[in-house]
Nucleic acid binder design. Structure first.
Lengths: 328, 328
DNA sequence: CTGAAAGCGCTTACAG
DNA sequence: CTGAAAGCGCTTACAG
C-alpha cells in the first residue's frame, strides 16, 4: 500500500480511501486505482481486518456436506456471498464433532456473520451461537431470536399426504430418519406431524411410521421392515427423496411393482427423482442458501438485526409415475 | 491478550509463546493457559496473521460443488484440514466465473495454501496459480510442477472395458460429458482413451462415443441418441455413474432390459449405484480430498515443495446386476 | 479533499 | 526462560 501511495504521489490514507468508496477527488481516485493496478496491489485481509474489525468472511455450518440438500445449500450460499465480495468458510460439522465445535466455536473473531444449517439446536448451542455477537441466519428451521430461511415442512408433508389420500389410498406408511440422531430431528418431527394430520383429516387412521438411519440404505431397510409385516400399505411417504430411493430399491428387489402395488412419494426433488420417476414435494434448496446469505448481507450493511426475519419458501408437488391409485 | 498477560502476571510476548509451542517454563505456560481459559481468550486471526504472515486457512477450489464427486472431495478435505486446525475457504468456481476467478485470484494474501480440483488447467491458469507463491495441490489430474492426487483414469476405464469384453460384448458404446465445456475435458479424454484401448485390444473395433452435457439428464439424452440408431450396442460404458443413471432411465422408459439386452457400467460408485444395481469402477473420493489436504500440510510444515508428489489412489471394479453377458 | 498519526492484536528477532 | 520494542498492513478519527 505504501508502494501504491508513493507511485500515485498521495498518502496511504488516501490510497485506503480510494480503494474503497470513501470520499476522494475523482482525479485522485483515478490515479490511485491506476497505480494499484500497475503494481498489482491486493489489499491484505489481515491488515484490513485488524484495523477495521471486519473480516469480509462468512461461515457456513452444515451437518452433512455431501448430502444432496446441503450440497445445494452450499452452492446457493457460496454464489450469493461471492457475488457480494465475501469469502465463505465451510464447516462440515456432523454428529461427531458437533459438541466440540459449539464449545470452542472456531468462528470467534474469524467471521463477520454465519449461516447455520440445522433443523434443531439445543438451548446451549443457541446460547453459544448468540454469544458470538455476529449476525446469524438459520436455515432449515425456525428458532426464536434467529432470522431464518426454510420451507414449511408440515405443509410439504401434508401435501404429500393429501395427494395419496386423493388417489384413494387408505393404508399408508411413512419412512423417517433415525430420531436418535439429534441432527435433523425437528425436520423429521414436523414432516411426520404434517403427514399424519393430513392422513387423519381424511378419516384414515394414522400412518405407521418406520424409523431407520437417514439415507438411501436406511430407506431400503425401513421398506424391508414394512414388507415383513402381514398387512402391507398401498403407499409410502418418505421423509426425503434419498430415503424414497432406498425404499424403491427394496421394492424392486422384492418384485413389488411401483406404483402398481405400492406408491412412493418423497420430499426434495433431488436431481435423480426425475430419472427414477419419483413423485415428490419439491423444495427450492439453492434458493434457501441464497436467501440465507442475503439475510446476512442485509444485517451486515443495514446493521439492523432482523431477529424476526422468517422467510418461508414455497414447495410444490411434482407428480411422476411412482404414485397412482391403489390396486383394487 | 494484554488482559491475559496482566491476569497471568507476564508479558504479552510470553502469552503469545505459551499459547503456541514456543519455549516457555512449564509453570509459566500453565499459568498463562489457565488465565486464557478463565478470560475465554481467543487469538485474533487478523492480529496473528498480520504479524506472522500465516492465515491458518486453506482454499478449496471446485468447479461444481453439488455434484457427487466434488461434494465428497469437500467432505474429505474439510475433515482433514479441520483436524489440523486449519479453516477452509470454499470457492465454487464453475464454468461461468472461472476466468474472472483466475484473473483476480481472490486467494491472494488470503490463504496459506490451496487445493485445486480440476481435470485441466490452461497454461495461463497454471501460471496464475503458481504466481500465488503458496503450496498447492491439484486433485483429479496430473500437471507438471503441481503436487497431485488422483486416480488412474485410463486404467479405471480400461477395467470397465475388459469387464465388458470378458462378458462377451462385441458392440459397445461410451457416453461422455460434453467436451465443449472446458472443465473436465482431460478426465473425459483419459477415460475415453483407456476404454477404447481396452476394447481394441480385444480385437473389437473402437466404441462409438456419444457426447452430451455432463450429468443425469445428459446421460439420458446420450442414451436416447444411441437408441435412435439401427445397430444397437449390447453394452454402454458411461464416464460417470451419474451419466449411467441417466442412461438407465432412458433404457427403462424405452422398455429395454438392463442387463438382458444392454449392459451398463459407470465410474465412481456413487451412493445410489448400489440402489440402482449399477456395475461401476469405484474410486475413493473422500480419500482423495483428504490426501490432497495432507499433501498441503506436509508442504506447510516441512516447507519442502514436493512438486513431484503424485499420489495415485486405487480403483476397483464393483460388479452388480447392470452388467451381464450380451443376449445370444 | 487530504495527510499525519494512532492503533487494531499479534509475532519475533534482540537483549538479557 | 522472559521482556521491551519494532513492525506486520491496514483504517479511521482528527486536523486542516
Amino acid at each position: 500500500m505504501a508502494d501504491v501511495a508513493r507511485h500515485a504521489g498521495v498518502s496511504i490514507a488516501t490510497v485506503s480511501r480510494a480503494l474503497r468508496d470513501a470520499a476522494v477527488a475523482p482525479a485522485t481516485r483515478e490515479r490511485v486505482l491506476r497505480s494499484a493496478r500497475e503494481l498489482e496491489y491486493v489489499t491484505s485481509p489481515a491488515g484490513s481486518g485488524l484495523s477495521s474489525g471486519r473480516t469480509k468472511t462468512v461461515a457456513l455450518v452444515v451437518p452433512f456436506a455431501a448430502r444432496w440438500f446441503f450440497s445445494e445449500v452450499i452452492v446457493g450460499a457460496e454464489t450469493a456471498l461471492r457475488e457480494a465480495g465475501l469469502d465463505m468458510l465451510l464447516y462440515n460439522i456432523g454428529r461427531t464433532d458437533r459438541e466440540r465445535f459449539f464449545a470452542t466455536l472456531p468462528l470467534r473473531r474469524r467471521v463477520d456473520a454465519a449461516i447455520v444449517v440445522a433443523s434443531s439446536l439445543t438451548p446451549d448451542q443457541q446460547h453459544q451461537l448468540r454469544s458470538l455477537g455476529i449476525p446469524l441466519s438459520l436455515l432449515g428451521s425456525r428458532i426464536e431470536g434467529f432470522p431464518s430461511v426454510r420451507i414449511d415442512d408440515e405443509h410439504a408433508a401434508a401435501t404429500a399426504g393429501r395427494h395419496l389420500v386423493g388417489l384413494g389410498h387408505r393404508r399408508v406408511a411413512m419412512i423417517c430418519g433415525d430420531p436418535s440422531n439429534p441432527v435433523g430431528t425437528a425436520t423429521t418431527a414436523r414432516r411426520r406431524a404434517g403427514f399424519t394430520t393430513a392422513i387423519e383429516a381424511a378419516g384414515i387412521c394414522g400412518p405407521e411410521v418406520v424409523e431407520e438411519e437417514w439415507g438411501i440404505t436406511g430407506g431400503g431397510r425401513a421398506m424391508g421392515r414394512i414388507l415383513g409385516q402381514a398387512d402391507l400399505p398401498t403407499a409410502i411417504f418418505a421423509e426425503s427423496d434419498e430415503m424414497a430411493f432406498g425404499a424403491m430399491h427394496t421394492l424392486r428387489r422384492a418384485g413389488i411393482g411401483v406404483p402398481d402395488r405400492i406408491s412412493v412419494v418423497g420430499v426434495d426433488d433431488h436431481e435423480l427423482a426425475m430419472a427414477l420417476e419419483l413423485t415428490t414435494v419439491a423444495q427450492p434448496v439453492k434458493e434457501q442458501g441464497a436467501a440465507a446469505a442475503r439475510a446476512l448481507l442485509h444485517q451486515l450493511t443495514d446493521s439492523i438485526p432482523p431477529s424476526n426475519y422468517d422467510r418461508v419458501l414455497p414447495t410444490r408437488l411434482v407428480v411422476r409415475r411412482s404414485s397412482a391409485p391403489p390396486p383394487p
